[in-house]
Write a protein that binds this DNA or RNA. Structure first.
Lengths: 141, 141
DNA sequence: TGACATCGGTTGCATTTGTAACTAATTGAC
DNA sequence: GTCAATTAGTTACAAATGCAACCGATGTCA
């Protein structure tokens, strides 16, 4: 019999922690604003970038284009996002937040910042730094 | 406009890293052995514990009972796992690996250990320690 | 110009996952 | 002992996700 322990396996531990932290944050906003995690990611990027193509969103949110497309559609239906044609390339659509979308963004950001602060507060400084370095090294690119 | 950056948001970064690492590991075994991540988790626990109830598996794999039930069914269909009645409580089923399941386990564990070693090798020692501490503190207890 | 590959984005379909309801067995209050 | 409440586990149905095909627009190369 082996001495392998799932509970010490890094991919497993990362998945468990990521899911716990995501759920914790999602509980803060999902019911209140009715948006999903993919939608939150798109909202967050458009809120800080102002305008972007769906193509750019795939890179900035680490989601594939189908997921982005559906998140954009959802936000549009909810009246949080608007599309307009890109004069330079008719295949593309320029995406940006509506005033309502901007208000929602402005309302969620404090929650995100509070979440981030709460998480960091749970970690001693060296764990914070190590986690930061590790996440960078283990993420794509 | 805010200076919030999704790319520095901990829940997001954790999700991205977790997914990258999981995919990387899954690529090693999923095609070769035809098992899913939930099935891998059950296999890993049964391989090291020998026998368990589904109920125990939910705790040891951090998956809900439906996911466990399906993973168990999948492993059974694949001939990797067998059920037998629990004399002490007819609601429960005792689960354990078949010889074939044990062989699969024995074949995957080295891959898991190599993966773990490869991941740790990418991290400097302080990042390793910090990540370890952080994952423990951020996971449900 | 025209033929063809490529790109941005959406849609259809199969698979996976989550939620809730359900069955069967056991426990516990009385 | 009887019966309601709880527990182990499965199933049915809905929502989310992934993959591949697809459509129209643009780029490329002759």
């Amino acid at each position: 019999m082996s001495n392998f322990a799932l509970s010490e396996f890094l991919p497993y531990r990362l998945a468990v922690a990521a899911s716990a932290v995501s759920d914790r944050f999602a509980r803060l906003y999902s019911a209140r604003f009715g948006i999903s995690i993919p939608e939150w990611r798109v909202l967050a990027v458009l809120g800080s970038f102002g305008t972007a193509h769906a193509r750019q969103l795939t890179a900035l949110t680490t989601m594939d284009k189908v997921k982005v497309s559906r998140a954009v559609a959802g936000l549009e239906t909810a009246g949080l996002l608007k599309r307009r044609a890109d004069a330079a390339d008719a295949r593309r659509t320029l995406l940006s937040l509506t005033p309502k979308g901007a208000r929602t963004y402005a309302a969620i950001i404090p929650l995100a910042e509070a979440m981030q602060a709460a998480l960091l507060a749970e970690l001693p400084p060296d764990a914070r730094a190590g986690l930061d370095a590790a996440l960078t090294l283990l993420s794509p690119r």
